[in-house]
Simulated scan of single mutants.
Amino acid sequence: MSTMVAALVFAAACGNNGGGNETGGASNAPTNAATNEASNAPTEEAAKLSGEIKVDGSSTVFPLTEAAAEEFNKLHPDVRVPVGVSGTGGGFKQFCAGEIAIADASRPIKEEEAAACKEAGIEYTELSVAFDGLSVVVSKENDFIDHLTVEELNKIFVTGSTVATWKDVRDSFPAEPIVMFSPGADSGTYDYFNEAILDKAGIRNDKAISFSEDDNALVQGVSGSKYGIGYFGFAYFEENQDKLKLVPIDGGTGPIAPSNETIKDGTYAPLSRPLYIYLNNKELERPEVKEFANFYIENIGSLAGEVGYVALPDEKYAEEAAKIQ
């Protein structure tokens, strides 16, 4: 797992290369919407933009893209940007079928997905847009958990687990049945948890666990069960912290809870992760798509904090902006 954390830190520092045609070189792309109001004002030509930009994919990335789409629409009211939430895997299926212009993803594209895109003639550009801390949560009514270790999380969720009660996890916990909630298999959050916590062994699938691609359904499930536990993006915890309790995770250096600071500096390990959008390069030839992509990268740093995520360093956004050109 330490290898995975190091890889994430390196990726954040150095950037990620997309699978399609990209141009290198740094740029000084602005990253703060408030300080760049003048640069975001539409030109006469840009103001006349119209059309539809279809986006789908990760429910974790959804709040970021929705925020960007809403702000973009204020400048370009004739451009529609519908944003779906079919999960990272579901988004890539549509993306590689040429059905959407942009895929939201809470993990990098898989080899088989990249192969499907290549077979369909879809070239793409990968852009990192923010950091997230995958958050483990229990109900506010839970009065016995103050932290969990990575090993205990593995014991609870791994396929083939015989753990049935909280006492099976830690002897000091009550002998009450565990009620588990997890994103579905099409979710990048599912994939990341499976890799970071379960060493790719897979998540159990029995009567003790419920799956949903809708993070709001997971919130409702956990908050409504005193002995429930689930996981999803940090933004969904922040939005619902009045009814959820955050569980600090001990990855080997003591219990650490996700926060803007621990997510950005990587100390919330191994559950800190970058988030992405994927652009269909052919779609970028449409002026409204390119304008939206530029707007997204120029402004998402300031929007990220508003919707519960952590912005990348300014120099990273400059690198990502250069890929769009």
Rank of each mutant, 00 (worst) to 15 (best):
F92T: 06
R204E: 00
F10D: 14
E195R: 11
A201E: 08
S135Y: 12
A304K: 10
V222P: 11
K264M: 09
N154K: 14
I249Y: 06
S139W: 05
A68C: 12
A201G: 00
L49Q: 02
G251C: 04
K48T: 00
H147E: 04
D146I: 09
V61N: 05
S106F: 08
A115S: 11
V9L: 15
A208H: 09
V289I: 07
E66I: 11
Y278E: 04
R80E: 03
D146M: 13
E195H: 13
Y309L: 09
E213S: 14
L127P: 15
L8C: 13
P42L: 09
D171N: 15
F295T: 02
P313M: 14
E22G: 13
F237Q: 06
C14L: 13
N32L: 13
F157N: 00
G224L: 04
F173P: 00
G25F: 03
A293W: 09
A164H: 11
N205F: 07
A67L: 06
G228S: 01
P108H: 05
N194Q: 08
S27T: 10
E70R: 14
D186V: 09
A208D: 06
K155R: 14
G228P: 02
P274C: 10
F295Y: 15
E239V: 05
V61Y: 09
L8V: 15
G15E: 03
K54Q: 10
S161P: 13
A185E: 14
A130T: 07
L271K: 03
E22N: 14
K200A: 06
K243Q: 08
G221E: 02
R107K: 10
I297C: 08
E141M: 00
E238D: 10
V179W: 02
N299C: 08
G305V: 09
V289F: 03
V169G: 07
V137E: 02
A68V: 13
A114I: 03
T88K: 01
V79M: 06
V9Y: 04
Y276D: 06
A269K: 10
I109E: 13
Y268L: 10
A68W: 00
L312Q: 13
D214Y: 00
I122K: 04
A105L: 03
G18P: 15
D171Y: 10
N36P: 05
N36K: 08
N32S: 13
S272G: 13
L8P: 00
Q94W: 02
F72E: 05
A97Q: 11
I203A: 04
V83K: 05
A164F: 05
K207I: 03
E239F: 12
K243S: 04
V163D: 04
E291T: 13
D191P: 03
V136I: 12
D242Y: 08
P177F: 01
I178G: 04
N154Q: 09
Y190C: 06
I203S: 04
V5Q: 12
N260D: 15
P274G: 15
S106A: 15
V136M: 05
I249D: 07
E298G: 11
S135N: 09
T253L: 09
A322R: 01
E119M: 07
F295W: 07
Y227K: 06
S212H: 02
I53H: 03
P183N: 04
S135E: 04
R80C: 05
I102T: 05
D314L: 10
D215I: 01
V5M: 11
N73G: 09
G305F: 11
A34M: 11
K140P: 01
V150W: 00
E315D: 14
A38M: 10
E320S: 09
K118V: 01
A116S: 12
N36C: 14
F173H: 04
